[in-house]
Nucleic acid binder design. Structure first.
Lengths: 133, 133
DNA sequence: GTTCGTGCAAACGGTTTGCAACAAT
DNA sequence: ATTGTTGCAAACCGTTTGCACGAAC
């Protein structure tokens, strides 16, 4: 476990007590906490910590490459009439979601996930859609 | 394009005017609309339609297999200290998000997506985690 | 004194819930 | 009469914003 304070400094983040407390939890956890879970956990040790500071800190960390924010939780839904299995491409500029045909992509190695009973597999590509020039 | 009313009946959904209007849009679109986008679109033809009815209808359609709700939009974030590329398994019972090592899975066929400049690939598995018995 | 970080409260956007009116059976 | 559907409003939850206080340089 590297020194958290050093780690923050390396990324140009001033190591305030609040940020250290957040970092100690969020950068070492195996879970994928929500902002509120981070707040709840860290408040034990830093009771004055506000939600705003948690959000500020998490966004700062993400910006500096210390963590990634993943839209993996339910909350804001996209409704898709295409019921069969298929994949998705998300245009990071426009936010557009496009279907990628199931047959175009092959995913191998699932057998290794012996602890899991897999009911759905989906590949999510992110990037830019090439515009016709 | 099959008859929408028949389609609803087949799935045991009473074809009310509101549901038909929602279905005509959401079951035939190529986009992946949010609930609000559905509401905005369908209100043109059915101005008394309320948001609640849209949500009710979309959930009902999802329950009956007419569409799928995909958590692909930003909104509720999970923060992940694992910055490098990797995949995820989501336990549908507990909601737990687990890391799947990058090297365990191989995705092939991306070359076919010539229209896209892919910056990130991620496989999302959903299912049940096998509990030790 | 200027910049940066924090905390509070309010606002915001998407979603859910409770309830009364209505339609269908 | 019972059930199912709708519409409105309020509540709710996660997130964002505005602002004032305080700390650090």
């Amino acid at each position: 476990m590297p020194n958290i304070i050093e780690l923050l400094r390396e990324r140009g983040v001033q190591p305030t007590p609040q940020r250290i407390a957040v970092a100690e939890f969020v950068l070492t956890t195996d879970t994928h906490p929500s902002a509120d879970e981070v707040w709840a956990k860290v408040r034990d040790r830093c009771p004055t910590l506000s939600r705003a500071t948690v959000y500020n800190t998490l966004h700062l960390f993400a910006e500096r490459g210390l963590l990634r924010t993943q839209p993996l939780r339910e909350g804001v839904a996209a409704f898709d009439p295409h019921v069969g299995p298929h994949h998705h491409f998300i245009d990071e500029e426009s936010g557009e979601i496009l279907d990628v045909p199931w047959d175009a992509i092959r995913v191998t190695g699932e057998e290794a996930l012996t602890d899991f009973e897999i009911r759905d597999v989906q590949v999510i590509f992110r990037g830019r859609r090439k515009r016709p020039e």
